[in-house]
Amino acid sequence: MNKLSAPFCRWLTPLFMLCVALCSAAQAQLSERFGDYELHYSVVNTTFIEPEVAAQYGLARGSRRAIINLSLREHLEDGSTVAREMDLDGRSWDLTQAQVDFDFIEVREGPALYYIGEFKFINREWRFFDISFTPEGSEETLNIDFKRQMYIND
């Protein structure tokens, strides 16, 4: 897993907030609860990333390219939440079973912590996702599966 520097992160938090706001309900950020942990996830087209930022950090932009964005929050007894590191293993595939194994990039900005994986897609293609993660300090590996229909953003 690669760690990205703070200048990139300053662009990333507003970027993901914008992406979540602009995405349709089917593509917007979702979350799933696993006991005290809540995994937030979204899938967005890379054309939402500014060209300079993408180039600086090796993220490929294009109308047929997307990223999966994951973050993990732990719910504490006092009612607050805190970002947690996690070990990740994830993949995506299409209806023909062509598979992509994610090489996640870790992005930190202050208390915010994201994990990003890249993939290519075909317009109107259904993509299936399988993500396994182990929260920092936990022995238990958790899993989430979901699917998204992808659209080219011209």
Rank of each mutant, 00 (worst) to 15 (best):
G79Q: 06
V20P: 00
E125W: 00
L95F: 06
M17C: 07
Y57K: 12
Y114E: 10
Q27P: 00
W93M: 03
N2T: 11
F104Y: 13
E125M: 00
G79C: 09
A26I: 00
R91T: 05
I122H: 13
Q149K: 04
I116H: 05
Y57T: 14
L30G: 15
M1P: 04
Y151C: 07
Q56M: 05
D78Y: 00
T81A: 15
F128I: 02
G137L: 01
Y57C: 15
W93T: 02
E50P: 01
C19Y: 12
L142D: 07
R10Q: 10
G35N: 07
K147E: 12
E77M: 03
S63H: 14
L76W: 01
A112M: 08
D130M: 03
A83H: 09
M17A: 15
V44S: 15
D101Q: 10
A25L: 11
A28Q: 11
L22F: 05
D94G: 15
W93K: 03
S71F: 10
E74W: 01
G35V: 04
R10W: 05
V82W: 05
L70F: 08
T47M: 09
S5L: 13
L59C: 07
D103T: 10
E125Q: 13
Y115F: 12
D94V: 01
F8S: 13
S71K: 06
L95D: 14
A83S: 14
L70M: 04
L18D: 10
F119Y: 07
M86I: 04
R33H: 11
L4Q: 09
A21G: 13
L12M: 07
P135L: 02
L95R: 06
I67L: 05
G79S: 12
L95C: 07
Q29K: 04
R73G: 09
R124M: 09
T46A: 09
L76P: 00
R61W: 05
D94L: 01
R91C: 09
P7M: 13
E109I: 01
R65G: 14
A112C: 08
A83T: 03
N45H: 06
G79P: 02
V20I: 06
L15I: 02
D89W: 01
D103I: 00
F119I: 01
F48H: 11
G79N: 13
